[in-house]
Amino acid sequence: MTSEFRVLGAGVWGLAFSDYLLNLGHNVEIFRRDTSLESIGIQQLGLKHIKSKHIKSLDTLNDQKSGNEINIVAVNSQGFSDLLNNYESYFSRVTELVSLTKGIDHQTGKFFSDLVFDKFINIRKYGLISGPSFAKDLCDGKRINVSFASIDDKLSKTMFEVTRSSYFQMTPTKYIYHIEIAGIIKNIAAIICGMTDEIFDKGIHVNKIIKKACDETWLLALELFEDLPGDEYKDIVDNLNRDREMIISSPGYIGDMILTCKQNQSRNYQFGKLIADKKISIEHAKKNIGTIEGYDCCKTLVEKYGARSELTNLLYQIINSQSEDRENIIRKIL
């Protein structure tokens, strides 16, 4: 079955996913600021199917008609809210949206799924793709299993059917908040893992930190329902606890945690290794690495969301401390 896709603001993962969809025989339009083939890193990623005809200027998005296309947001976390705001006219005409981007809006403190639902009453179907993989792995045809989080069964079924292959599969889950929060906490945990691997023997504390990150994700998700009436809150907690093992074992939860916390390719892990050195300032490390999702999300969770969780507050102390105090702070969790 051939489907129509629009990939919006395609970054590295968006380009890899677009190439994969084209390989499956789907029709794909890629909207990005730079429309030149030279800018997308065809050789570095190993892209085989993207041609000039597939790429359109993002500036034309508001002029596009909306039909039966599956729209996939593929910007980095910094650009998510800007994409929604700059192309509000287009998004106000679509009814469903899929995202490769997960995180929290640093202006409002809202999770991206809430940002979409609050801003666009027309979008009632929303799905999130998340799992333990790198873009290059998809291009190389390595076996990948990711989570597709959505409360809409029809959207989940469609995405499962039109994207699966011998080496790629989506595992449906209804627990969007858990997958979204796991995507945030994994980056915070990866920074701490990078620090501990640099300060102590590599790997000896990683599993403990991942366990704490999984527990922290669970508690943060529960906090979202605390304002509900007592009986309703109890029912939700009971249902979540019943499905806890299934939720935590999903690719977008524990799978993503393990990959991000143990792989040197992770920018957050690299940032952690850098700031373990007392001679390197936080600002220098940020400039060296670039966008560091764990750093930004940590500040937002504490300053705007009021998060009380252990790992998040530990990292917040580290990034606001003197360089010579970082090792003493990190020892508190071990």
Rank of each mutant, 00 (worst) to 15 (best):
D82Q: 10
K278S: 15
L58Y: 02
L115K: 12
Y233P: 03
F200G: 01
N320K: 08
R32I: 01
I319N: 00
I179D: 02
C139H: 11
L315Y: 05
S281V: 13
D137F: 14
K332N: 11
V73L: 10
I333V: 14
F200W: 03
I318V: 09
D325A: 05
M195S: 01
D114H: 11
L8D: 04
E4I: 13
L222H: 06
L334V: 08
V12I: 15
A307C: 12
A190N: 04
W13K: 13
L274K: 15
K119P: 14
C214E: 10
H26W: 06
D59A: 01
I247K: 12
N86Q: 10
Q270G: 11
S250Y: 04
E88Y: 04
F5R: 12
T217C: 08
K65Y: 00
I151A: 05
T260P: 12
K125Y: 14
E38T: 05
H54M: 04
F120L: 09
T60W: 01
T108G: 07
T163I: 04
Q317C: 07
A10R: 06
S156E: 07
D227A: 07
T35W: 04
I247R: 10
V237A: 10
V146H: 11
R164C: 06
K278F: 07
I42P: 02
A189T: 09
I258C: 04
I319R: 00
G14D: 07
D197F: 00
L220V: 09
D118N: 12
V146I: 11
K125C: 14
D137I: 07
D82L: 10
